[in-house]
Design a protein around this nucleic acid. Structure first.
Lengths: 246, 246
DNA sequence: ACCACGAGTTGATCTATGTCAAGCGTGTGG
DNA sequence: CCACACGCTTGACATAGATCAACTCGTGGT
Protein backbone atom coordinates (compact mmCIF):
# COMPACT_ATOMS: atom_id res chain seq x y z
CA UNK A 1 0.00 0.00 0.00
CA UNK A 2 2.85 2.40 0.78
CA UNK A 3 3.60 3.19 -2.82
CA UNK A 4 0.00 4.17 -3.33
CA UNK A 5 -0.22 6.67 -0.53
CA UNK A 6 2.63 8.85 -1.78
CA UNK A 7 0.75 10.48 -4.65
CA UNK A 8 -0.89 13.79 -4.01
CA UNK A 9 -1.87 15.29 -7.34
CA UNK A 10 -3.21 13.60 -10.39
CA UNK A 11 -1.63 14.05 -13.74
CA UNK A 12 -3.58 16.93 -15.12
CA UNK A 13 -4.51 16.54 -18.71
CA UNK A 14 -7.82 18.19 -19.32
CA UNK A 15 -9.37 16.79 -22.44
CA UNK A 16 -12.53 17.96 -24.13
CA UNK A 17 -15.11 15.27 -23.76
CA UNK A 18 -18.34 14.28 -25.31
CA UNK A 19 -20.86 11.77 -24.11
CA UNK A 20 -22.29 11.87 -27.63
CA UNK A 21 -19.52 9.71 -28.98
CA UNK A 22 -18.71 7.74 -25.84
CA UNK A 23 -19.50 4.07 -26.17
CA UNK A 24 -20.35 3.86 -22.47
CA UNK A 25 -23.30 6.13 -22.93
CA UNK A 26 -25.81 3.42 -22.30
CA UNK A 27 -24.15 2.32 -19.07
CA UNK A 28 -23.48 5.77 -17.74
CA UNK A 29 -25.26 8.94 -16.76
CA UNK A 30 -26.82 9.72 -20.18
CA UNK A 31 -28.70 6.43 -20.27
CA UNK A 32 -32.03 6.79 -22.03
CA UNK A 33 -31.56 10.39 -23.10
CA UNK A 34 -32.37 11.71 -26.57
CA UNK A 35 -29.51 13.05 -28.72
CA UNK A 36 -30.55 16.57 -27.87
CA UNK A 37 -30.54 15.82 -24.20
CA UNK A 38 -27.17 14.12 -24.40
CA UNK A 39 -25.85 17.32 -25.94
CA UNK A 40 -27.01 19.20 -22.83
CA UNK A 41 -25.15 16.73 -20.65
CA UNK A 42 -22.07 17.13 -22.83
CA UNK A 43 -22.06 20.80 -21.95
CA UNK A 44 -21.73 20.18 -18.28
CA UNK A 45 -18.88 17.74 -18.56
CA UNK A 46 -15.94 19.89 -19.44
CA UNK A 47 -13.05 18.12 -17.80
CA UNK A 48 -11.63 14.69 -18.24
CA UNK A 49 -8.69 13.50 -16.21
CA UNK A 50 -6.24 10.65 -16.15
CA UNK A 51 -5.73 8.96 -12.82
CA UNK A 52 -2.68 6.73 -12.61
CA UNK A 53 -2.77 3.41 -10.87
CA UNK A 54 -2.39 4.04 -7.16
CA UNK A 55 -3.49 7.67 -7.28
CA UNK A 56 -6.38 8.99 -5.27
CA UNK A 57 -9.27 10.48 -7.16
CA UNK A 58 -10.49 11.92 -3.88
CA UNK A 59 -10.01 11.36 -0.20
CA UNK A 60 -12.29 11.25 2.81
CA UNK A 61 -12.68 14.77 4.12
CA UNK A 62 -11.94 16.57 0.88
CA UNK A 63 -14.59 18.99 -0.32
CA UNK A 64 -17.15 17.66 -2.70
CA UNK A 65 -17.72 19.46 -5.97
CA UNK A 66 -18.12 16.86 -8.67
CA UNK A 67 -19.20 13.38 -9.19
CA UNK A 68 -17.09 11.34 -11.56
CA UNK A 69 -17.93 8.99 -14.39
CA UNK A 70 -15.34 6.34 -15.10
CA UNK A 71 -14.43 6.36 -18.77
CA UNK A 72 -11.75 3.72 -18.58
CA UNK A 73 -10.10 1.90 -15.75
CA UNK A 74 -10.92 0.49 -12.37
CA UNK A 75 -11.28 1.98 -8.89
CA UNK A 76 -11.85 0.98 -5.32
CA UNK A 77 -13.51 3.06 -2.64
CA UNK A 78 -12.81 2.49 1.03
CA UNK A 79 -13.43 3.92 4.46
CA UNK A 80 -10.89 4.04 7.24
CA UNK A 81 -11.06 3.69 11.00
CA UNK A 82 -8.57 5.73 13.04
CA UNK A 83 -6.85 2.57 14.21
CA UNK A 84 -5.94 1.62 10.67
CA UNK A 85 -8.63 -0.92 9.93
CA UNK A 86 -10.25 -0.28 6.62
CA UNK A 87 -13.21 -1.48 4.67
CA UNK A 88 -13.39 -1.49 0.89
CA UNK A 89 -16.91 -0.30 0.12
CA UNK A 90 -16.83 -1.04 -3.59
CA UNK A 91 -14.99 -1.68 -6.82
CA UNK A 92 -16.04 0.52 -9.74
CA UNK A 93 -15.52 0.03 -13.43
CA UNK A 94 -16.14 1.90 -16.68
CA UNK A 95 -19.50 3.61 -16.91
CA UNK A 96 -20.04 3.72 -13.16
CA UNK A 97 -20.26 6.87 -11.06
CA UNK A 98 -18.00 7.81 -8.19
CA UNK A 99 -18.45 10.39 -5.48
CA UNK A 100 -22.14 10.13 -4.59
CA UNK A 101 -21.13 9.83 -0.95
CA UNK A 102 -19.98 13.46 -0.98
CA UNK A 103 -23.38 15.02 -1.63
CA UNK A 104 -24.64 14.52 1.88
CA UNK A 105 -22.11 16.69 3.75
CA UNK A 106 -20.34 18.49 0.88
CA UNK A 107 -17.30 16.44 1.85
CA UNK A 108 -16.29 13.04 0.66
CA UNK A 109 -16.76 10.36 3.25
CA UNK A 110 -14.58 7.74 1.61
CA UNK A 111 -11.44 7.43 -0.46
CA UNK A 112 -11.31 6.54 -4.14
CA UNK A 113 -8.14 5.06 -5.60
CA UNK A 114 -7.43 3.91 -9.14
CA UNK A 115 -6.46 0.23 -9.30
CA UNK A 116 -5.21 0.69 -12.85
CA UNK A 117 -4.45 3.67 -15.05
CA UNK A 118 -7.86 5.23 -15.55
CA UNK A 119 -9.72 8.14 -17.00
CA UNK A 120 -12.69 9.89 -15.46
CA UNK A 121 -15.13 12.61 -16.51
CA UNK A 122 -15.81 15.39 -14.01
CA UNK A 123 -19.48 16.18 -13.55
CA UNK A 124 -19.79 19.39 -11.50
CA UNK A 125 -22.62 18.61 -9.16
CA UNK A 126 -24.22 22.04 -9.06
CA UNK A 127 -24.47 21.97 -12.83
CA UNK A 128 -25.83 18.44 -12.79
CA UNK A 129 -28.63 19.56 -10.48
CA UNK A 130 -29.29 22.51 -12.78
CA UNK A 131 -29.61 20.39 -15.87
CA UNK A 132 -31.59 17.69 -14.13
CA UNK A 133 -34.15 20.34 -13.14
CA UNK A 134 -34.64 20.88 -16.84
CA UNK A 135 -34.43 17.34 -18.18
CA UNK A 136 -36.82 15.02 -16.45
CA UNK A 137 -35.28 11.91 -17.97
CA UNK A 138 -31.88 12.86 -16.60
CA UNK A 139 -33.31 13.68 -13.20
CA UNK A 140 -35.07 10.37 -12.99
CA UNK A 141 -32.11 8.40 -14.20
CA UNK A 142 -29.85 10.07 -11.67
CA UNK A 143 -32.26 9.14 -8.91
CA UNK A 144 -32.23 5.59 -10.17
CA UNK A 145 -28.46 5.50 -10.06
CA UNK A 146 -28.39 6.68 -6.46
CA UNK A 147 -31.10 4.23 -5.52
CA UNK A 148 -29.23 1.43 -7.25
CA UNK A 149 -26.23 2.23 -5.10
CA UNK A 150 -28.37 1.90 -1.99
CA UNK A 151 -29.71 -1.45 -3.19
CA UNK A 152 -26.19 -2.63 -3.96
CA UNK A 153 -25.08 -1.64 -0.47
CA UNK A 154 -27.91 -3.64 1.03
CA UNK A 155 -26.71 -6.62 -0.95
CA UNK A 156 -23.25 -6.20 0.51
CA UNK A 157 -24.73 -5.92 3.98
CA UNK A 158 -26.54 -9.20 3.38
CA UNK A 159 -23.30 -10.76 2.24
CA UNK A 160 -21.31 -9.47 5.21
CA UNK A 161 -24.01 -10.22 7.72
CA UNK A 162 -25.10 -13.69 6.72
CA UNK A 163 -22.79 -15.44 4.28
CA UNK A 164 -19.89 -17.80 4.82
CA UNK A 165 -16.51 -17.21 3.24
CA UNK A 166 -17.04 -19.28 0.11
CA UNK A 167 -20.50 -17.89 -0.49
CA UNK A 168 -19.09 -14.40 -0.26
CA UNK A 169 -16.35 -15.12 -2.74
CA UNK A 170 -18.71 -16.86 -5.16
CA UNK A 171 -21.08 -13.91 -4.99
CA UNK A 172 -18.17 -11.60 -5.67
CA UNK A 173 -17.00 -13.55 -8.71
CA UNK A 174 -20.50 -13.82 -10.15
CA UNK A 175 -21.01 -10.10 -9.70
CA UNK A 176 -17.75 -9.28 -11.48
CA UNK A 177 -18.59 -11.70 -14.25
CA UNK A 178 -21.97 -10.10 -14.77
CA UNK A 179 -20.53 -6.59 -14.87
CA UNK A 180 -17.81 -7.57 -17.32
CA UNK A 181 -20.44 -9.17 -19.50
CA UNK A 182 -22.49 -5.96 -19.52
CA UNK A 183 -19.38 -4.23 -20.87
CA UNK A 184 -18.91 -6.68 -23.68
CA UNK A 185 -16.18 -8.77 -22.08
CA UNK A 186 -16.12 -12.47 -21.45
CA UNK A 187 -18.31 -13.63 -18.59
CA UNK A 188 -15.95 -16.47 -17.86
CA UNK A 189 -12.47 -15.07 -18.09
CA UNK A 190 -11.05 -11.90 -16.64
CA UNK A 191 -8.23 -10.38 -14.69
CA UNK A 192 -8.75 -9.21 -11.16
CA UNK A 193 -7.51 -5.67 -10.67
CA UNK A 194 -7.35 -5.96 -6.92
CA UNK A 195 -5.23 -7.93 -4.48
CA UNK A 196 -6.41 -10.74 -2.24
CA UNK A 197 -6.19 -8.32 0.62
CA UNK A 198 -8.51 -5.85 -1.12
CA UNK A 199 -10.96 -8.60 -1.96
CA UNK A 200 -10.80 -9.68 1.66
CA UNK A 201 -11.41 -6.18 2.91
CA UNK A 202 -14.47 -5.90 0.67
CA UNK A 203 -15.81 -9.28 1.73
CA UNK A 204 -14.99 -8.99 5.42
CA UNK A 205 -12.37 -11.76 5.24
CA UNK A 206 -8.63 -12.04 5.71
CA UNK A 207 -6.49 -12.44 2.64
CA UNK A 208 -5.53 -15.98 3.65
CA UNK A 209 -9.18 -16.97 3.70
CA UNK A 210 -9.68 -15.49 0.25
CA UNK A 211 -6.66 -17.39 -1.01
CA UNK A 212 -7.81 -20.65 0.53
CA UNK A 213 -11.29 -20.24 -0.91
CA UNK A 214 -9.84 -19.66 -4.37
CA UNK A 215 -7.79 -22.81 -3.98
CA UNK A 216 -10.84 -24.76 -2.85
CA UNK A 217 -12.85 -23.55 -5.85
CA UNK A 218 -10.02 -24.62 -8.08
CA UNK A 219 -9.76 -28.07 -6.48
CA UNK A 220 -13.48 -28.47 -7.06
CA UNK A 221 -13.14 -27.51 -10.70
CA UNK A 222 -15.32 -24.45 -10.38
CA UNK A 223 -12.70 -21.99 -11.53
CA UNK A 224 -9.08 -21.85 -12.54
CA UNK A 225 -6.92 -19.28 -10.81
CA UNK A 226 -3.52 -18.11 -11.85
CA UNK A 227 -2.66 -15.13 -9.71
CA UNK A 228 -5.00 -12.42 -10.96
CA UNK A 229 -6.27 -14.34 -13.93
CA UNK A 230 -9.61 -16.02 -13.28
CA UNK A 231 -11.45 -18.42 -15.51
CA UNK A 232 -14.89 -19.55 -14.43
CA UNK A 233 -15.26 -23.18 -15.46
CA UNK A 234 -18.59 -24.01 -13.88
CA UNK A 235 -20.80 -21.03 -13.37
CA UNK A 236 -23.82 -22.97 -12.19
CA UNK A 237 -21.59 -24.76 -9.73
CA UNK A 238 -20.70 -21.39 -8.29
CA UNK A 239 -24.35 -20.38 -8.18
CA UNK A 240 -25.23 -23.60 -6.40
CA UNK A 241 -22.93 -22.60 -3.59
CA UNK A 242 -25.38 -19.81 -2.84
CA UNK A 243 -28.70 -21.61 -3.12
CA UNK A 244 -28.65 -24.81 -1.25
CA UNK A 245 -27.77 -23.88 2.26
CA UNK A 246 -29.95 -25.40 4.94
CA UNK B 1 -47.59 11.19 20.22
CA UNK B 2 -50.98 10.20 21.59
CA UNK B 3 -52.82 12.88 19.68
CA UNK B 4 -51.72 11.29 16.43
CA UNK B 5 -52.64 7.76 17.33
CA UNK B 6 -56.05 8.57 18.77
CA UNK B 7 -59.11 7.69 16.79
CA UNK B 8 -60.38 11.28 16.82
CA UNK B 9 -61.41 12.44 13.38
CA UNK B 10 -59.18 14.94 11.70
CA UNK B 11 -60.38 17.40 9.17
CA UNK B 12 -59.13 16.94 5.64
CA UNK B 13 -57.42 20.27 5.71
CA UNK B 14 -55.50 19.27 8.80
CA UNK B 15 -54.22 16.27 6.88
CA UNK B 16 -53.41 18.35 3.83
CA UNK B 17 -51.25 20.77 5.75
CA UNK B 18 -49.25 18.03 7.36
CA UNK B 19 -45.70 19.37 6.99
CA UNK B 20 -46.43 23.00 7.87
CA UNK B 21 -47.37 22.17 11.40
CA UNK B 22 -45.42 18.97 11.81
CA UNK B 23 -42.76 19.23 14.46
CA UNK B 24 -40.53 16.85 12.52
CA UNK B 25 -40.17 19.32 9.69
CA UNK B 26 -36.55 20.03 10.41
CA UNK B 27 -35.62 16.34 10.47
CA UNK B 28 -37.64 15.35 7.48
CA UNK B 29 -37.99 16.10 3.80
CA UNK B 30 -38.90 19.80 4.12
CA UNK B 31 -35.66 20.61 5.93
CA UNK B 32 -34.41 24.07 5.05
CA UNK B 33 -37.41 25.08 2.99
CA UNK B 34 -39.17 28.42 3.25
CA UNK B 35 -42.80 28.50 4.42
CA UNK B 36 -43.92 28.94 0.83
CA UNK B 37 -41.88 25.97 -0.29
CA UNK B 38 -43.16 23.83 2.55
CA UNK B 39 -46.65 24.64 1.34
CA UNK B 40 -45.73 23.19 -2.06
CA UNK B 41 -44.49 20.02 -0.38
CA UNK B 42 -47.70 19.84 1.65
CA UNK B 43 -49.62 19.68 -1.59
CA UNK B 44 -47.94 16.53 -2.72
CA UNK B 45 -48.47 14.68 0.52
CA UNK B 46 -52.11 13.76 0.42
CA UNK B 47 -52.22 10.47 2.21
CA UNK B 48 -51.26 9.51 5.66
CA UNK B 49 -51.57 5.99 6.91
CA UNK B 50 -51.43 4.04 10.13
CA UNK B 51 -49.29 0.95 10.17
CA UNK B 52 -49.84 -1.39 13.08
CA UNK B 53 -47.00 -3.10 14.84
CA UNK B 54 -46.02 -6.10 12.78
CA UNK B 55 -47.60 -4.88 9.54
CA UNK B 56 -45.62 -4.48 6.36
CA UNK B 57 -45.48 -1.01 4.88
CA UNK B 58 -44.16 -2.60 1.71
CA UNK B 59 -42.57 -5.84 0.62
CA UNK B 60 -39.70 -6.76 -1.64
CA UNK B 61 -41.04 -7.09 -5.16
CA UNK B 62 -44.04 -4.82 -4.73
CA UNK B 63 -44.28 -1.94 -7.16
CA UNK B 64 -42.77 1.32 -6.09
CA UNK B 65 -44.88 4.44 -6.22
CA UNK B 66 -44.17 6.44 -3.12
CA UNK B 67 -41.53 7.08 -0.61
CA UNK B 68 -42.70 7.35 2.97
CA UNK B 69 -41.90 9.75 5.75
CA UNK B 70 -42.30 8.36 9.24
CA UNK B 71 -44.48 10.63 11.32
CA UNK B 72 -44.57 8.49 14.40
CA UNK B 73 -43.31 5.04 15.20
CA UNK B 74 -40.46 2.77 14.37
CA UNK B 75 -39.64 0.49 11.45
CA UNK B 76 -37.13 -2.07 10.34
CA UNK B 77 -36.16 -2.85 6.76
CA UNK B 78 -34.71 -6.19 5.79
CA UNK B 79 -33.74 -8.30 2.82
CA UNK B 80 -34.32 -12.01 2.49
CA UNK B 81 -32.39 -14.86 0.95
CA UNK B 82 -34.42 -17.73 -0.51
CA UNK B 83 -33.11 -20.11 2.13
CA UNK B 84 -34.63 -18.04 4.89
CA UNK B 85 -31.59 -16.14 6.06
CA UNK B 86 -32.33 -12.47 6.42
CA UNK B 87 -30.46 -9.28 7.02
CA UNK B 88 -31.94 -6.25 8.71
CA UNK B 89 -30.67 -3.32 6.66
CA UNK B 90 -31.83 -0.58 8.98
CA UNK B 91 -34.05 0.70 11.76
CA UNK B 92 -35.95 3.88 10.98
CA UNK B 93 -37.58 6.36 13.29
CA UNK B 94 -39.72 9.50 13.08
CA UNK B 95 -38.63 11.98 10.45
CA UNK B 96 -36.74 9.41 8.39
CA UNK B 97 -37.63 8.34 4.87
CA UNK B 98 -38.48 4.84 3.74
CA UNK B 99 -38.61 3.34 0.29
CA UNK B 100 -35.62 4.91 -1.47
CA UNK B 101 -34.55 1.42 -2.53
CA UNK B 102 -37.56 1.20 -4.82
CA UNK B 103 -36.56 4.01 -7.18
CA UNK B 104 -33.93 1.99 -8.97
CA UNK B 105 -36.14 -0.73 -10.46
CA UNK B 106 -39.64 0.62 -9.75
CA UNK B 107 -39.98 -2.27 -7.34
CA UNK B 108 -39.05 -2.41 -3.72
CA UNK B 109 -35.99 -4.47 -3.03
CA UNK B 110 -36.51 -4.88 0.69
CA UNK B 111 -39.29 -5.26 3.22
CA UNK B 112 -40.40 -2.60 5.68
CA UNK B 113 -42.21 -3.62 8.86
CA UNK B 114 -43.49 -1.47 11.70
CA UNK B 115 -41.95 -2.42 15.04
CA UNK B 116 -44.59 -0.39 16.86
CA UNK B 117 -47.85 1.23 15.85
CA UNK B 118 -46.78 3.91 13.44
CA UNK B 119 -47.96 6.56 11.06
CA UNK B 120 -46.40 7.44 7.74
CA UNK B 121 -46.91 10.12 5.10
CA UNK B 122 -47.08 8.95 1.48
CA UNK B 123 -44.96 10.98 -0.89
CA UNK B 124 -45.83 9.98 -4.46
CA UNK B 125 -42.48 9.83 -6.15
CA UNK B 126 -43.50 11.19 -9.53
CA UNK B 127 -44.87 14.27 -7.83
CA UNK B 128 -41.80 14.61 -5.69
CA UNK B 129 -39.66 14.70 -8.81
CA UNK B 130 -42.02 17.27 -10.30
CA UNK B 131 -41.81 19.59 -7.36
CA UNK B 132 -38.09 19.12 -6.92
CA UNK B 133 -37.61 20.27 -10.51
CA UNK B 134 -39.19 23.53 -9.39
CA UNK B 135 -37.73 23.95 -5.95
CA UNK B 136 -33.97 23.79 -5.97
CA UNK B 137 -33.72 23.62 -2.19
CA UNK B 138 -35.95 20.59 -2.13
CA UNK B 139 -34.08 18.94 -4.96
CA UNK B 140 -30.77 19.43 -3.22
CA UNK B 141 -32.05 18.28 0.13
CA UNK B 142 -33.49 15.15 -1.39
CA UNK B 143 -30.14 14.38 -2.98
CA UNK B 144 -28.50 14.87 0.38
CA UNK B 145 -30.92 12.45 1.98
CA UNK B 146 -30.14 9.77 -0.59
CA UNK B 147 -26.43 10.38 -0.26
CA UNK B 148 -26.69 10.22 3.51
CA UNK B 149 -28.26 6.81 3.16
CA UNK B 150 -25.30 5.67 1.06
CA UNK B 151 -22.87 6.99 3.65
CA UNK B 152 -24.80 5.28 6.41
CA UNK B 153 -24.67 2.01 4.50
CA UNK B 154 -20.91 2.33 4.16
CA UNK B 155 -20.72 2.75 7.91
CA UNK B 156 -22.66 -0.46 8.37
CA UNK B 157 -20.37 -2.22 5.91
CA UNK B 158 -17.40 -1.05 7.98
CA UNK B 159 -19.09 -2.36 11.09
CA UNK B 160 -19.94 -5.73 9.56
CA UNK B 161 -16.62 -6.11 7.83
CA UNK B 162 -14.18 -5.11 10.54
CA UNK B 163 -15.69 -4.87 14.01
CA UNK B 164 -15.93 -7.38 16.81
CA UNK B 165 -19.21 -8.15 18.52
CA UNK B 166 -18.91 -5.66 21.37
CA UNK B 167 -17.73 -2.91 19.09
CA UNK B 168 -20.73 -3.50 16.87
CA UNK B 169 -23.15 -3.35 19.75
CA UNK B 170 -21.54 -0.25 21.23
CA UNK B 171 -21.69 1.47 17.84
CA UNK B 172 -25.33 0.50 17.59
CA UNK B 173 -26.22 1.89 21.02
CA UNK B 174 -24.34 5.12 20.42
CA UNK B 175 -26.10 5.57 17.11
CA UNK B 176 -29.52 5.05 18.67
CA UNK B 177 -28.66 7.41 21.50
CA UNK B 178 -27.63 10.10 19.06
CA UNK B 179 -30.78 9.74 16.99
CA UNK B 180 -33.04 9.82 20.04
CA UNK B 181 -31.24 12.94 21.18
CA UNK B 182 -31.86 14.61 17.81
CA UNK B 183 -35.56 13.97 18.42
CA UNK B 184 -35.57 15.55 21.84
CA UNK B 185 -35.43 12.36 23.88
CA UNK B 186 -32.92 11.36 26.51
CA UNK B 187 -29.53 10.35 25.12
CA UNK B 188 -29.03 7.97 28.00
CA UNK B 189 -32.31 6.19 28.49
CA UNK B 190 -34.57 4.58 25.96
CA UNK B 191 -36.57 1.52 25.06
CA UNK B 192 -35.42 -0.74 22.30
CA UNK B 193 -38.21 -1.42 19.84
CA UNK B 194 -36.54 -4.50 18.37
CA UNK B 195 -35.70 -7.94 19.67
CA UNK B 196 -32.22 -9.31 20.33
CA UNK B 197 -32.62 -11.34 17.19
CA UNK B 198 -33.35 -8.26 15.10
CA UNK B 199 -30.39 -6.43 16.60
CA UNK B 200 -28.30 -9.48 15.82
CA UNK B 201 -29.49 -9.62 12.26
CA UNK B 202 -28.60 -5.98 11.78
CA UNK B 203 -25.18 -6.40 13.36
CA UNK B 204 -24.33 -9.74 11.77
CA UNK B 205 -24.45 -11.58 15.11
CA UNK B 206 -26.58 -14.27 16.68
CA UNK B 207 -29.07 -13.28 19.34
CA UNK B 208 -27.10 -15.11 22.02
CA UNK B 209 -24.06 -13.01 21.24
CA UNK B 210 -26.09 -9.84 21.48
CA UNK B 211 -27.47 -10.96 24.83
CA UNK B 212 -24.04 -11.86 26.16
CA UNK B 213 -22.60 -8.55 25.05
CA UNK B 214 -25.38 -6.67 26.81
CA UNK B 215 -24.64 -8.65 29.95
CA UNK B 216 -20.94 -7.90 29.65
CA UNK B 217 -21.62 -4.16 29.24
CA UNK B 218 -23.79 -4.31 32.32
CA UNK B 219 -21.15 -6.15 34.35
CA UNK B 220 -18.68 -3.47 33.37
CA UNK B 221 -21.05 -0.72 34.47
CA UNK B 222 -21.36 0.78 31.01
CA UNK B 223 -25.10 0.35 30.74
CA UNK B 224 -28.02 -1.07 32.63
CA UNK B 225 -30.30 -3.42 30.74
CA UNK B 226 -33.72 -4.56 31.73
CA UNK B 227 -35.22 -6.37 28.80
CA UNK B 228 -35.86 -3.62 26.27
CA UNK B 229 -35.09 -0.79 28.61
CA UNK B 230 -31.57 0.56 28.22
CA UNK B 231 -29.82 3.12 30.32
CA UNK B 232 -26.38 4.25 29.25
CA UNK B 233 -24.34 4.82 32.39
CA UNK B 234 -20.94 5.55 30.89
CA UNK B 235 -21.10 6.90 27.40
CA UNK B 236 -17.39 7.60 27.08
CA UNK B 237 -16.71 4.08 28.26
CA UNK B 238 -18.76 2.84 25.35
CA UNK B 239 -16.92 5.14 22.97
CA UNK B 240 -13.60 3.88 24.28
CA UNK B 241 -14.54 0.41 23.18
CA UNK B 242 -14.33 1.69 19.64
CA UNK B 243 -11.11 3.70 19.75
CA UNK B 244 -8.41 1.76 21.41
CA UNK B 245 -8.09 -1.35 19.36
CA UNK B 246 -4.58 -2.21 18.26
C1' DA C 1 -56.39 -11.20 35.76
C1' DC C 2 -54.16 -15.07 34.12
C1' DC C 3 -51.83 -18.02 31.19
C1' DA C 4 -48.91 -19.35 27.57
C1' DC C 5 -45.66 -18.52 24.58
C1' DG C 6 -42.23 -15.60 22.77
C1' DA C 7 -38.08 -13.27 24.27
C1' DG C 8 -34.05 -13.33 26.89
C1' DT C 9 -30.20 -15.32 29.63
C1' DT C 10 -26.58 -18.39 30.54
C1' DG C 11 -23.68 -22.55 30.13
C1' DA C 12 -21.07 -26.15 27.47
C1' DT C 13 -19.18 -27.29 23.36
C1' DC C 14 -18.01 -26.83 18.36
C1' DT C 15 -16.17 -24.72 14.25
C1' DA C 16 -15.15 -21.38 10.66
C1' DT C 17 -12.14 -18.16 10.18
C1' DG C 18 -8.36 -15.49 12.10
C1' DT C 19 -3.50 -15.40 13.29
C1' DC C 20 1.22 -16.42 12.80
C1' DA C 21 4.76 -18.21 10.17
C1' DA C 22 7.47 -19.90 6.34
C1' DG C 23 8.41 -20.23 1.63
C1' DC C 24 7.47 -19.45 -3.34
C1' DG C 25 6.82 -17.03 -7.82
C1' DT C 26 5.76 -13.24 -10.70
C1' DG C 27 5.31 -8.86 -12.56
C1' DT C 28 6.98 -4.10 -11.85
C1' DG C 29 10.09 -0.54 -11.61
C1' DG C 30 14.60 0.79 -12.08
C1' DC D 1 16.17 -7.09 -18.87
C1' DC D 2 16.87 -8.39 -14.27
C1' DA D 3 16.17 -8.47 -9.30
C1' DC D 4 13.61 -8.28 -5.52
C1' DA D 5 9.71 -6.83 -3.15
C1' DC D 6 5.15 -7.69 -2.99
C1' DG D 7 1.50 -10.69 -3.54
C1' DC D 8 0.15 -15.23 -2.95
C1' DT D 9 -0.13 -19.94 -1.07
C1' DT D 10 -0.13 -23.27 2.46
C1' DG D 11 0.35 -25.22 7.11
C1' DA D 12 -0.26 -25.29 12.26
C1' DC D 13 -2.59 -23.45 15.80
C1' DA D 14 -5.77 -20.02 18.38
C1' DT D 15 -10.16 -17.99 19.28
C1' DA D 16 -14.44 -15.29 18.74
C1' DG D 17 -18.64 -16.28 18.00
C1' DA D 18 -22.02 -19.97 16.52
C1' DT D 19 -24.63 -23.70 17.97
C1' DC D 20 -27.26 -26.48 21.03
C1' DA D 21 -29.65 -26.79 25.16
C1' DA D 22 -32.00 -25.75 29.42
C1' DC D 23 -34.12 -22.59 32.03
C1' DT D 24 -36.41 -17.96 33.49
C1' DC D 25 -38.95 -13.98 32.77
C1' DG D 26 -42.47 -10.89 31.37
C1' DT D 27 -45.87 -9.36 28.37
C1' DG D 28 -49.60 -9.40 25.26
C1' DG D 29 -53.88 -11.46 24.18
C1' DT D 30 -58.22 -13.37 25.73
Amino acid sequence: MSRFTSSVDMSLSAIKTACSNCNLRELCLPFGLSDQEVARVDELINVRKRVKRGENLYRAGSTFESIYAIRTGFFKTYVLLEDGRDQVTGFQMAGELLGLDGISTERHSCNAVALEDSEVCFIPFVRLEEVSREIQTLQHHFHKVMSREIVRDHGVMLLLGTMRAEERLATFLLNLSQRFTARGFSPAEFNLRMTREEIGSYLGLKLETVSRSFSRFQEEGLISVQQKHIRILNISGLKNLLDHRK
